[in-house]
Design a binder for these strands. Structure first.
Lengths: 205, 205
DNA sequence: GTCTATACGCGGATAGAC
DNA sequence: GTCTATCCGCGTATAGAC
């Protein structure tokens, strides 16, 4: 990996643990194994390094969503082909990814922590972890409702009901890595109860 | 207000905007109108001041919950007397309080931002904004389900379905104070759809 | 591109007078 | 309890040699 990339990853790891102001350029350089002055050959300053991390976050997030079949600009056809069981798979995959993938978890923590201090970080956090996911889910549920797979209801609120608990569980189990099994059980219980309440078959209850 | 209290409130306001490491003791002193050295007559150091804020957060939160009829250690009788319509009122009141009350909003933002850096802040965040609320709501829904007011289902998951969207909406509209009306409309739509899905009368759909 | 050396301000904190 | 004065380390960043 090139030095510039190594700097970005080491900085991300440190920032996500101690915050932007809690990490010095010297410490980042030490983690990379170079002198602090050398960082300035790659990034014009600490702020520029931080912005590069924000851009990296957006790229990574888009890639992840795409690989899970949740592109920001999806093929309408592919949305129609999604089934209810895909929701179980997708929610589980996205949950584990955001919880355990070191880079994804570091980015999420960093954006969460810095959202109020740097307006760009706030916008990025909002865009990635709230709006883009809700939009994506809203499209899916709209298709489900049209197709009769799900009960009628505002698709945006339905997406909120599906996604918000996932985000809260992520938050809750973030600091308790030893309870991963419990986290997954809670996630599954959430999705199951959601299906019973929102799915067509749920009316039998 | 005593100097010690003024220090705590000014520090809270500054920390919540710029973070713990983003605010110096000199800046806090300037906001209060004294010299930095004088702060040490009230708090032994920056860390001690921060911990005092965390303790204050717990007290304030408990008071707020109590005034909304959501004590941490509730009278079982009072829980039974809650009605469905109380949910609308409570959710609206707690939402507006956490969103707009300056002290409550500052505490929430500060704890959100610092949760990964100071383990005590992380515990406090988790305790206040996740566990205590979910526990409280779980008790209420358990009572509702027993009383037949609500459909059967895991009360803990039901609480998750009720509270998680509120927390997400709080997060979403935190940086958009001009959209308060929209935020309240979304909150009401959430609670309404929740009622239709979970309430007894919802079966008619 | 990386190094050493260095500039210079600001950080938390303390001493001691009033 | 508040002030002035001060300590000293660490922060970001630059200059210039290799």
């Amino acid at each position: 990996m090139e030095t510039k990339e190594r700097i970005l990853h080491e900085a991300l790891a440190l920032f996500s643990e101690r915050g932007y102001d809690g990490v010095s350029m010297r410490q980042i350089a030490a983690a990379v194994g170079i002198q602090a002055a050398s960082l300035y050959s790659h990034y014009a300053g600490k702020e520029y390094l931080f912005r590069a991390i924000l851009e990296f976050a957006q790229e990574r997030f888009a890639e992840t969503m795409h690989s899970l079949g949740l592109a920001a600009d999806p093929d309408p056809q592919s949305v129609m082909e999604l089934k209810e069981k895909d929701l179980q798979r997708i929610s589980r995959e996205i949950f584990l990814h955001l919880l355990k993938d070191p880079t994804a978890a570091a980015l999420r923590r960093l954006l969460t922590a810095e959202q109020f201090r740097h307006s760009i970080a706030g916008q990025t956090y909002q865009q990635l972890y709230i709006e883009s996911v809700l939009d994506s889910q809203t499209r899916i549920f709209k298709a489900f409702i049209s197709a009769g797979t799900m009960r009628k209801g505002d698709p945006a609120i339905t997406a909120l009901h599906f996604y918000a608990p996932i985000l809260l569980l992520l938050n809750k189990y973030d600091r308790q890595p030893e309870k991963e099994a419990k986290a997954l059980a809670a996630l599954e219980a959430h999705v199951n109860q959601f299906m019973r309440r929102y799915g067509r078959k749920g009316n039998k209850e």
